[in-house]
Design a protein around this nucleic acid. Structure first.
Lengths: 336, 336
DNA sequence: GTGAAAGCGCTAACAT
DNA sequence: ATGTTAGCGCTTTCAC
């Protein structure tokens, strides 16, 4: 019963005679032996590990995506190293460094910045990489995305169509691609609206897509002149914060202020009022990204692929669309 | 410029002469060298990795805890292997196995089952372990917890004090300790209520603490006879599902049915109606657990410690406490 | 202050 | 079918 045989029992059981195999298994059990992935990795070059770098795991949008990815990766024997960057490029860099030192077998990443060169370099150094909710642009990278330009257009277009002329857009830094895209979509809707009326879109940039920042932004928003009659938020966390602040300030939604979110997280439909939002297939996004990653990591002759989903506007009470005669700016009306 | 010197430059820079050091650093930069954690680990025995095993990362309660833990562990150079068990004991076992093979330097875990022997064995084999939101019972383990018995008592007691006599309790499997404890607290409140009136507590067990399961449970709840006038839920995900179903079924909350949740997640206050819930310090729980882990992993002579937080009832509209003359069972009344 | 060499636990190629 | 051995990339004595 030698070292090599033990290894074979673990990795190629069929090559070892049954009696020996059992003797080995019994010994493993008796001694409480647990193989070392590190040593395995050193020899074979696979760490059975995938890095997942995202903006914030406490954001339900990302958490759902992670669940989608975890489901497929777990079944393939991988474990996830989850890294929240909090939208900090330094933190992202540090994490990428650490993940590379760990020799992750793959990387799922929602990059903080617009510029993908660092990520592309990593991929170039041989780490299979899939962009999460972010397309590769000119870089040759796999990605699983939702059309954010279209999503932004849906959200803003909805508000313009309801007759709002002064819309505020609580958006994250435009260094974040999703934010830039949603803004572009919103501006597209704006241009269209302008053909009929003097519409305006006032962007308020916050530095994180969080509930906190949404609360702060809403306060600022109320002191704008003229006060906008509608807000569009770059995600539901921000929208939640905005709703909180408006509620505290006694501003009626949607009558004094219409609100639209983005992501359609699980609680959006049960907010007070129910939040109109742009739905993204979160779980599927993660699952597809993981599958692309496996393809790239295992497949021999891999071609980069991008999967793109279509966003969908889910209209609920917060935008006021359910009222007859959709609301005009600053004209509070009695609750039905 | 030999191998050993390179190692020294990376780990004990001060021991290498400046010119050599710079030469080495330049070479590292030029060749794009990235050290291998696996090899390091094989030699030194540290993986710079912490396993985090929890029921569901998509549950904001756990996601917040992870953020708390990540904050302190990241600063200490660790990366988190996040594992959602989905309350499946087999999945937990598989993950624990994998984490042990990875030789994680520590383990934060919310175990699925009541029985902690397997976890205690792991800890006994030398993996520093801290229980997350779960106390060690007779096992010698560090833990960061909230008093769930007290929490359950607060939630149920609140409903009984409002005059409800038939309360339903949508709870997870009592193999999950938190669920068992919350139930015990609820029963304590029940016994107290019984001294004044013929109160009842009807438990409905669901097999996951999810929005889905909450929706299903609420439907069953409506066909109970006599129909309860209040529901207490084991967490806010369930409560969210219950609210969704009740809303669809046209049952007014809190007038026809009062609802209480547990966790007080970020969106609880903005639900329609705002959810009465038991607040737990989620972020702090994760942060403290991580600190206990570091203590145990780094400190020489470690004594096991348990940190216990007190839960806090946050009363909002969903329980109907804000109405004058709190509701009695099955007596719908006009919305004020 | 620097270099040479042993060994961490494993696997794959080879020898028996 | 089983045993033997070299070497993955690193750290850490120990000589120089």
């Amino acid at each position: 019963m030698s070292l090599g045989t033990v290894s074979n029992v673990l990795n190629n059981p069929e090559v070892v005679a049954l009696p020996t195999r059992q003797r080995v298994l019994e010994a493993i059990d008796r001694t409480g032996f647990v193989r070392s992935t590190a040593a395995h990795q050193l020899r074979v070059g696979k760490s059975r590990t995938v890095g997942v770098v995202l903006l914030d795991i406490a954001n339900p949008f990302f958490a759902e995506m992670v669940r989608g990815a975890e489901g497929v990766l777990r079944d393939n024997g991988y474990v996830l190293m989850v890294c929240s960057t909090d939208e900090s490029i330094e933190r992202e860099r540090r994490y990428l460094r650490v993940l590379e030192e760990h020799r992750v077998d793959g990387l799922l990443i929602t990059p903080v910045e617009h510029d993908l060169r660092e990520v592309a370099e990593l991929a170039g150094r041989g780490i299979p990489t899939v962009l999460l909710d972010r397309d590769g642009g000119e870089q040759e990278l796999c990605s699983a995305t939702v059309d954010d330009i279209r999503g932004g257009e849906l959200a803003a277009g909805h508000l313009f169509e309801l007759g709002h002329q002064a819309i505020a857009f609580v958006n994250g830094p435009s260094s974040i691609r999703q934010c830039a895209d949603r803004r572009e979509g919103a501006q597209r809707a704006l241009r269209r609206a302008r053909r009929r009326s003097p519409a305006t879109l006032r962007e308020m940039t916050v530095n994180a897509l969080s509930v906190d920042q949404g609360e702060k932004a809403a306060i600022g928003l109320l002191s704008l002149t003229p006060r906008p009659s509608a807000v569009m938020c770059a995600n539901d966390q921000l929208a939640l914060g905005v709703l909180k602040s408006l509620s505290e300030a006694g501003v009626a939604v949607p009558d004094e202020m219409a609100v639209v979110g983005y992501d359609d997280v699980s609680f959006a439909s049960m907010l007070s009022p129910a939040l109109t939002s742009v739905r993204q297939p979160k779980y599927e996004l993660g699952a597809i990204a993981a599958e692309l990653l496996l393809e790239e990591a295992l497949g021999s002759n891999h071609k980069h692929r991008s999967v793109r989903f279509e966003p969908e506007l889910v209209v609920r009470a917060s935008s006021g669309a359910t009222r007859r005669g959709a609301g005009r700016a600053g004209q509070p009306r009695p609750v039905p």
